[in-house]
Amino acid sequence: MIEIQNLYKSFDDKDVLKDINATFENGKTNLIIGQSGSGKTVLMKCIVGLLQPTTGNILYDGRNYAAMGKKEKMLIRREMGMIFQSAALFDSMSVLENVMFPLDMFSDAPLEDRVKRARFCLDRVNLLDAQKKFPGEISGGMQKRVAIARAIALNPKYLFCDEPNSGLDPKTSLVIDDLIHDITQEYNMTTIINTHDMNSVMGIGEKIIYIYEGCKEWEGDKSQIMGATNEKLNNFIFASDLFRKVKEAYMSTHQTSTPKK
């Protein structure tokens, strides 16, 4: 479980995040949604420790990240897996070497076992056939799957995904979403996904927080989002014609919605 308490982040005089409080439970896919520039990437970077919050605390299963020493921070980072928007695979390494990399760095297991584990992770994302290829030789969707395999190689407790569907077609996006959702439940991880893909929100949003201009504007799950009365959230979620029509159809069949602010 990851808890965020009274988190503020400023750059020079500009407040990018203001008083964010949230709890992300394990075994669930937790989504942070918001428009571009709303501060969700900054929030993600603060959570993983790439940025130092101005004030506030981030607790990993009760362990306060800000109060930790350098060595403890390094150790807790080994419990994290992250999937970047650009996949961030190492260009000079093959697919198998990319997945083996965290194992090579931190595992004392013999080479055979490390290769076996890396192949297992690649098999889990259906990419065992591509193990000898280089990142430049595979598609964007495959790169994201390799990134997932690399992220789970060390059985992390916490999985972070920064816009995992960015640049992917809707069908591949669904594959990635399902994979992240299944892996989260399989390994009972605390997964946080940064996204503005509404298919992801409706598909795997077991817990959703909506960030608007650096503030947490709404919190709920995918079943509550249709009936939400928050104007800013509705302007964001139902911006497209398709989703507006979906909402109208939903509202006409569900006269009594369960809004939550």
Binding site: I76, R78, S86, F90, F101
Partner: peptide
Amino acid sequence: GTMRVTQQIDALEIMGIN
């Protein structure tokens, strides 16, 4: 530089690597 802008260095840092 390319590793930095394509977040490969961030990926190393997240893994707890100097």
